[in-house]
């Protein structure tokens, strides 16, 4: 049985039932990924690699109204890196990135069909978590963005290689270089989102899709996934290097400080 994968953590909960694993994010204010979330994701990915029986699907979703995930915990990143000397901060960032990449690579290559059921804010690292999944099902409130350039960075959780894998380079450049957010309709037009549903219906649609997947031969589905969705390991490693090079620049610390200390009502507007 796979019941051992089920757990309730501070940042997320995992449930297993009848071949379907559901990972629910629930860390206030909007599922920002910091050290606590990373530890729980690592624990989850270890469980995913040691399932006693095959699961046919994994659905990742958020229990919070604000959305799927607002990305990396920038406050924690700033406070931790600010408290360290420069070399220690750089090492800490690289370590964090390598750990989150290991987790997302496991989800990306998981021997089951993975579905991100998203709504609301799906930014930065949250968008990257969704991109690691095989399918994205979004409700009409979902909004996607890679705002990292505003901080003098690039996405660091595998966003660019995975976006390049899924859509055309011109669209990647638009989303990355403008840092603009876009809605579900646009996301479906560019081929990122497979299903658009009414507000609040993404999880239900993901479960219905998972039920359909359960009808197929598991090994055939895994083989098909491996064939059509290679994990871009080399580019992912390169992304970590580029991110770390950029992170060492003073402009990044200034950008993080501005974001963290902002009392502006518009810090998420590029």
């Amino acid at each position: 049985m796979n019941a051992g994968i089920s757990r309730k953590g501070e940042a997320m909960s995992v449930e297993y039932k009848d071949g379907l694993i559901e990972l629910a994010l629930h860390r206030d204010p909007c599922n920002e990924i910091g050290s606590q979330s990373l530890e729980e994701l690592e624990s989850f990915s270890e469980s995913l690699q040691s399932l006693k029986q095959p699961a046919h699907a994994l659905v990742i979703h958020s229990d919070l109204k604000c959305g799927f995930c607002a990305g990396a915990d920038l406050r924690e990143l700033y406070e931790r890196s600010h408290a360290m000397v420069k070399d220690e901060a750089a090492k800490g960032v690289r370590d964090f990135l390598e750990r989150i990449h290991r987790v997302l690579n496991v989800i990306d290559a998981a021997p089951m069909t993975t579905i991100a059921a998203v709504h609301g804010v799906t930014f930065g690292g949250g968008f990257e978590l969704a991109l690691a999944c095989d399918l994205i099902i979004a409700d009409k409130t979902a909004r996607f963005a890679f705002p990292e350039l505003r901080l003098g960075l690039i996405p660091g959780f595998g966003g660019i290689p995975r976006l390049k894998r899924d859509i055309g380079n011109a669209v990647v450049r638009d989303l990355l270089l403008t840092g603009r957010s876009f809605n579900t309709t646009k996301a479906q037009q560019i081929g990122l989102v497979s299903q658009v549903v009414a507000e609040g219906e993404a999880l239900r649609a993901a479960r219905a899709t998972a039920a359909q997947l359960a009808k197929f031969d598991h090994q055939t589905a895994v083989t098909a996934k491996q064939f059509i969705k290679p994990v871009p390991y080399e580019e992912l490693k390169r992304e970590i290097d580029i991110f770390c090079d950029l992170f060492s620049r003073p402009a990044v610390q200034a950008g993080l400080k501005k974001f963290v200390q902002s009392t502006d009502a518009q810090p998420y507007l590029p």
Binding site: C30, C66, G67, A70, G120, V121, K140, T141, A142, R143, A145, T178, G179, R180, S181, F182, N183, T184, T185, K186, D264, A265, Q266, P267, Y268, L269, P270
Partner: peptide, 25 residues
């Protein structure tokens, strides 16, 4: 700002337009 983006999504869906959020700065 996150709620403002939520409103922007509502407006884009209602009017069937795409409005880059940097225009709202």
């Amino acid at each position: 700002s996150l709620q403002a983006l939520d409103l922007l999504t509502k407006l884009e869906n209602h009017f069937r337009v795409e409005l880059p959020d940097y225009e709202l700065q």
